[in-house]
Amino acid sequence: MEADAVARTTRPGTTSTIAAQVRALGLPAGATVVTHSSLSRLGWVAGGAHAVVLALLEAIGPDGTLVMPTHTRHLTEPSDWGNPPVPESWWATIRAETPAFDPRTSPPGYMGAIVDCFRTFPGVLRSAHPTVSFAALGPRAERVTAGHELDDGLGEGSPLARLYELDAWVLLLGVGHDNNTSLHLAEYRADGPKRYERQGSPVLVDGERRWVTYRELAGDTSLFEPLGKDFAEITGGELTGPVGAGTGRLMRQRRLVDFGVHWLSLRAANAGVGPRGVAEVEG
């Protein structure tokens, strides 16, 4: 992968060049910004993920707050796993023995090198949800991460809703809207039938490990790319430009979520069904 990055890069990315490119996109100093990223798609960067995190912090300055998803979807109900599935005879052991989620130590799963680097920075706070946590650093970090509710972990009791209240920015570095978690908040808020599922995870309750169950929305991320494309074309609210050897996409989160609510609600009304064509039930 590093050889591919070198081959796609005409000039190495650095902390200073990436910070300048992010500012050139329009991200202001003092901003609160939730970032989704792929280090490999930025080409070769001197210092790798560490340099990118430093660049983002440099771009927003000491008054800004940097937020990243630190999801741990491997801490879920094993009977739902499909990539790969595990034998049914393992399920009870997984539920009984998987270490409980700990915001301080539980590693994100498949979130990328930039996220894994960022969560270790001094002063970073992390929300307490066992599967869809967020990490934040800056003056508004506590407001973003505190009180993350177990049910509907990407809905009104989540850091996404706190970012909406703060009129935060969304920055996509080398990734598309299929990685844009703010669109899950739009799914929760959109009109139309919805399907909820029961989920399970190991957590610490008063210092004791327990397997708990909770509900989450069964959304449809396949809609996120066309939704994002329409947002960019219709509203003009997506700013794009080079970041390293990749593309950066910048937008206001509140404007995106509001557009997404309208887009998903219209789609449901026109189809007569919800985003996945199912009746509203609670699992």
Rank of each mutant, 00 (worst) to 15 (best):
R254K: 13
L183G: 04
G138T: 10
T240H: 12
F231R: 08
E208S: 11
G200D: 04
A96G: 11
Y164R: 14
R210N: 04
T14C: 04
A141W: 04
G64N: 07
G112T: 03
I114P: 00
G207P: 10
V67K: 05
W44Y: 15
L160A: 04
E156T: 10
L183V: 14
L137Y: 03
T213P: 00
V115N: 05
L256R: 11
R252L: 11
I18M: 10
L75Y: 01
A31E: 02
R104C: 04
L39K: 00
R11W: 09
R189W: 13
N180E: 15
D178Q: 13
S127P: 01
G123D: 09
A51G: 06
L250S: 05
V34R: 03
G123P: 05
L173N: 08
A100Y: 02
E97H: 12
N270V: 12
G207I: 03
F224V: 12
L217F: 09
P193H: 09
P62D: 01
H262Q: 15
S79M: 06
A7E: 12
R95Y: 04
R276W: 05
W169F: 14
E216R: 15
V175S: 02
I114M: 08
W44D: 03
S38E: 09
H71E: 13
R276T: 15
H129Q: 08
R249I: 03
G109M: 13
P84Q: 10
L173R: 01
R41T: 10
H184T: 01
A245M: 08
W263A: 06
T32E: 13
G157M: 06
T10C: 10
G109F: 15
E233M: 12
A51E: 06
Q253N: 13
S265A: 03
L217R: 10
D220N: 15
G272P: 05
P62S: 01
L160E: 00
T76N: 13
D4Y: 11
L172D: 05
V203T: 01
D230K: 14
E197S: 10
L160F: 11
L154N: 08
V261P: 01
G61T: 10
E165K: 05
D178K: 13
E97I: 00
R210K: 14
G147W: 06
E156W: 11
G157I: 10
R126S: 02
T70A: 15
L204V: 03
W169M: 07
T93M: 05
L154P: 02
E142Q: 12
P139G: 03
A59L: 02
V67I: 08
V212N: 04
A92M: 08
R126C: 07
G176K: 09
D102V: 03
A3M: 12
G248E: 07
M1S: 14
A46P: 00
G200A: 14
F231T: 11
E238L: 15
R189P: 00
D151I: 02
D258Y: 01
T65M: 06
W169A: 06
V45I: 15
E58L: 12
G82P: 00
V257Q: 02
L264T: 09
S79P: 01
R210L: 02
T235H: 11
S40W: 07
Y164H: 14
P275R: 13
D220P: 07
L250V: 06
D258E: 13
C117Q: 15
L56Y: 09
Y196Q: 07
D178A: 14
W81V: 08
T70Q: 08
N270D: 12
T235C: 08
G274V: 07
V132E: 13
L54D: 15
L57V: 06
T65H: 02
T213C: 05
